[in-house]
């Protein structure tokens, strides 16, 4: 404690205190900081601000204060259902990304260097290739005359409606966001010292116990980061549900896109964005505290 205080005061004296010194020290960071302020922080605040004003068909925003967008979003059963659908979809996608992503992350961390390179490439390339391209692959696979249905027709003589439902949206989203679980899991398992699992085994744990008590516990920060990313991005997904889903697979993200780009109702779209962000943040916080408290890993914050 005392050390921390002297460290702090020490830094305080070293730190430049005149404006010109300050500029001399930090000037290079001013352009990027200002850039994000002007093109990220202020636009987001502006979006939240306009969500409290009325929509007008002629001028888009009419500057009369109103809470109608929020009332509509929170009390209209249609919008309640939509939010619930989005939350449920995100939970399912996150769960499957854990089930599929954890083994792959574990594999990459524990396999031979050559296989690791190949597997990392197989995870990294899809992440970089872009959503639309990968979704197109699923469309061809699931379409009425697509790859799977052609096989079904030839072998069994019938077809299935695979495209345009919640299942195809879920599979598409899992494929798109899987790397976001694999990579942090891999990274945190690789950081575990090699001697810990053999030590647990020597102390009498079987393979599964050693895995659960050492590897799994120590990889939780990576798993947590990955699932939070998947959850947040699925909550906000637009392109995948739009291309793979049917008319009823309306997510909050699609609602934002439809009202902002097609409907030009910016105040309402902003209100949707605000509600969505608050809901997402609250759920992520609950999940984070749950994992932190239940798993007894309180040192990471």
């Amino acid at each position: 404690m005392l050390g921390a205080i002297t460290d702090y005061t020490g830094n305080l004296f070293d730190r430049p205190n005149r404006v010109s010194d300050w500029l001399d020290e930090y000037l290079p960071a001013v352009p990027p900081a200002a850039y994000l302020l002007i093109f990220l922080i202020l636009p987001i605040l502006y979006a939240v601000y306009i969500s409290f004003f009325e929509y007008s068909a002629t001028t888009i925003i009419s500057w009369n204060f109103t809470l109608e967008h929020y009332e509509q979003l929170l009390f209209d059963p249609f919008y309640q259902g939509l939010l619930w659908y989005t939350v449920r979809l995100s939970l399912i996608v996150s769960a499957f990304c854990v089930i599929l992503g954890y083994p792959l992350g574990y594999f990459i961390a524990t396999t031979t260097p050559l296989r690791r390179q190949l597997a990392l490439f197989a995870v990294f390339l899809p992440l970089m290739v872009g959503t639309v391209v990968r979704i197109y692959g699923w469309i061809v696979l699931f379409a009425t005359n697509g790859v799977i249905n052609t096989v079904l027709q030839d072998l069994l003589g019938f077809k299935l409606a695979l495209l345009g439902n919640t299942l195809s949206v879920t599979i598409g989203l899992i494929g798109v966001y899987l790397p976001l679980v694999v990579l942090p899991v891999y990274s945190s398992i690789e950081d575990i010292p090699d001697s810990l699992v053999p030590a647990a085994r020597n102390l009498g744990a079987n393979q599964l116990q050693a895995f659960y008590k050492v590897t799994f516990r120590l990889s939780l920060p990576g798993l947590l980061t990955g699932t939070i990313f998947v959850f947040v991005l699925t909550m906000n997904s637009i392109v995948t549900p739009d291309l793979l889903g049917g008319r009823s697979d309306l997510t909050m993200g699609r609602l934002i896109y439809d009202s902002a780009v097609n409907g030009l109702n910016w105040p309402f779209a902003s209100a949707v964005g605000t509600v969505l962000t608050i809901t997402t943040t609250a759920l992520v916080y609950i999940y984070f505290s749950f994992v932190r408290d239940r798993m007894g890993v309180s040192e990471w914050d």
Binding site: Y26, A33, L36, P43, Y46, A47
Partner: peptide, 30 residues
């Protein structure tokens, strides 16, 4: 020697933390 270094790093990676749909919407209306 940057004061609040963690917070400053968070600031510069904030576009990674804020969902892209929100960034896109905010940029569009601005």
């Amino acid at each position: 020697d940057v004061p609040f270094e963690n917070e400053v790093v968070m600031y510069f990676i904030s576009p990674l933390i804020i969902p892209p749909a929100i960034i896109a919407l905010a940029l569009m209306i601005t």
